[in-house]
Amino acid sequence: MTRRRYQNGKQVIRRWDEVFKAVTAEPRRQLIISLSDAHPDETVPLPESAVNPNVPRDPAVLRQKLYHCHLPMLADHEFITWETEPLVAGRGPRFEEVAVVFEALQSNATDIPESLVFGCQRLEQERQERRSDSVAE
């Protein structure tokens, strides 16, 4: 029993490390959010779906970074699938493991420090909606 718990514990640690590594770059976060908004069987166009609307980037540079860095990393951990022509991404078998991080943040938007909300359209909107709901009650 102890050996099994140890092995399970190591696996859980590895998976959390993979999830947190996946969300350390803005294009990956934006892509995960875009895929969360899409139907589970749909793909999203790239590089458009990996752009923060508040901080637009050069699409050619972003496309290159997606192709050579971000997409392979997410695909290696099975968070996404992707195709090159056209450049699109879809949900991978482990997508929910990264999506849940953003779902938890959105659910708790009113508790997140303002310094982490202001400038993030999604969290700003969620915070506003939750505050409006609590005032209406």
Rank of each mutant, 00 (worst) to 15 (best):
Q11S: 14
V12F: 12
V12C: 10
I13D: 13
R15I: 13
R15S: 15
E18G: 09
F20P: 04
F20M: 10
K21T: 06
V23G: 05
V23F: 03
T24K: 05
A25D: 12
E26R: 07
E26W: 03
R28S: 09
Q30N: 15
I32H: 11
I32Y: 08
I32F: 04
I32W: 04
S34A: 15
L35I: 12
D37E: 15
D37A: 12
A38D: 13
A38K: 11
H39K: 15
H39N: 14
H39G: 00
P40Y: 10
T43Y: 06
P45I: 05
L46W: 08
P47R: 05
A50W: 03
V55D: 15
V55C: 09
P56T: 12
P56Y: 15
R57V: 05
D58Y: 14
P59W: 08
V61A: 12
Q64N: 12
Q64D: 13
H68E: 07
H70V: 03
H70M: 11
H70I: 09
H70W: 07
H70D: 14
H70C: 03
H70E: 12
L71W: 05
L71V: 01
P72F: 00
M73C: 02
A75V: 01
F79W: 13
I80S: 06
T81P: 02
W82R: 02
W82L: 02
T84L: 04
V88E: 13
V88I: 05
R91A: 03
G92I: 01
R94S: 13
F95A: 00
E97H: 01
V98F: 03
A99F: 04
A104E: 08
A104N: 06
L105Y: 04
L105F: 13
Q106F: 01
N108Y: 00
A109M: 02
I112V: 15
P113G: 10
P113F: 11
E114L: 08
L116Q: 11
V117G: 10
C120N: 14
C120K: 09
Q121S: 11
E124W: 02
